[in-house]
């Protein structure tokens, strides 16, 4: 099993941390993972993206050309990466911001109103965790409870935000 994911959006949408959540989840499930961010001027207000490879054997290349899954949190990111997605792959689209439908028919498109769902969970800031929930539900990569455990571990220094994030994860998980 090797899963290649590109996550992209505006800086501030939690793109990089969403990738890290998945990397942590993989590690706690005793899988291998590489998380590679775009870095440099891009992190100053422009678009940000990260490449995530999760595998049950040592990850060879951390560089992804044809992702199995694209998570696009804004329109420029969708446009930039949509044509790279492997045929048969999955595209998760934040339809709170992206109002277009994709033209490709050889990939599975999942439209998720991440911002609205996040607001219901308590804060629009948890939109990335909503997407995490949706991705885990779609991919079946890790058991739901294990990822919830990961979320609790990641936020252990800010225990007051754990319930909100678990709620966001749950709402994302059930939304798809």
């Amino acid at each position: 099993m090797t899963e290649k994911i590109i996550i992209a959006g505006f800086g501030g949408q939690g793109v990089l941390s969403l990738g890290q959540f998945l990397a942590y989840a993989a590690m706690y499930e005793n899988q291998e993972a590489t998380w590679l961010p775009s870095y440099g001027p891009e992190m100053r207000g422009g678009t940000a993206n990260c490449s995530l490879v999760i595998s049950d054997k040592p990850v060879a290349s951390p560089i992804i050309e044809t992702p199995d899954c694209l998570i696009a949190l804004n329109k420029p990111s969708l446009d930039k990466f949509i044509n790279n997605v492997r045929p048969g792959g999955t595209v998760i689209i934040n339809s709170s911001i992206i109002h277009d439908k994709i033209e490709r028919t050889d990939v599975k498109a999942v439209y998720l109103e991440a911002n609205e769902i996040a607001a219901k969970a308590g804060s629009v800031k948890t939109a990335n965790v909503v997407v995490l929930g949706a991705y885990i539900a779609l991919s079946g990569l890790f058991p739901k409870e294990s990822v919830k455990g990961t979320i609790a571990k990641i936020f252990k220094k800010k225990p007051d935000v754990i319930p909100m994030n678990l709620n966001a994860f749950e709402l994302g998980y059930t939304a798809v």
């Binding site: 990397a23 993989a26 993972a33 590489t34 590679l36 870095y39 990850v59 951390p62």
Partner: peptide
């Protein structure tokens, strides 16, 4: 290189 420095791995 830049990848090795910026990448995260367990």
């Amino acid at each position: 290189d830049g990848v090795l420095g910026q990448m995260m791995e367990p």
